[in-house]
């Protein structure tokens, strides 16, 4: 993979981070998708050699700083996500599209579960309803990524 492609992949993760702090209209705000998680899943599937755990942790840490969550929360969740996605990648890429989507959703659910459980433990309030919204909007994003981006 060329340096340009690597830079493009990391830029995508950076863009996901930036988008996650852009205030959306009130109606869409409830459906704020987990941009970083989706970007990381895409990175693992499309460019596994760039999907390093350290990169995921750094991106998660940046998200912690950007959104004001407890330091380490998103770092931990992003690391778990990349680990799971990287281990499941061979199965994911060889599966039919519906199973591929299902597995990606499973990884996303794990990521969101970590955020809610660990965050809740450290006083970072998150609701299951919000998680469900994020899961759904994240699912839509994953579908779009699978349809329009080369995975």
């Amino acid at each position: 993979m060329t340096d340009g492609a690597v830079a493009r992949n990391y830029a995508l993760v950076g863009a996901a981070l930036l988008i996650s702090i852009v205030p959306l209209p009130r109606l869409l705000d409830l459906w704020q998708p987990p941009w970083l998680a989706v970007a990381l899943i895409w990175l693992v599937l499309a460019a596994p050699e760039n999907a390093r755990l350290a990169v995921a942790a750094a991106a998660g840490l940046l998200q912690d700083l950007l959104v004001g969550s407890p330091l380490g929360l998103y770092a931990l969740a992003a690391t778990v996500l990349v680990f799971l996605a990287a281990n499941m990648r061979p199965r994911i890429v060889s599966s039919p599209p519906w199973l591929r989507f299902l597995l990606a959703m499973l990884i996303l659910a794990a990521y969101l579960g970590v955020v809610v459980l660990i965050g809740g433990w450290f006083g970072y309030v998150g609701s299951w309803a919000g998680i469900a919204n994020s899961l759904m909007s994240g699912g839509v994003l994953i579908l779009i990524a699978f349809l329009f981006l080369k995975v």
Binding site: G60, L76, T79, I118
Partner: peptide, 9 residues
Amino acid sequence: ICLLSFGLL
């Protein structure tokens, strides 16, 4: 990394 993140938390 998870331990480090948890430690940070």
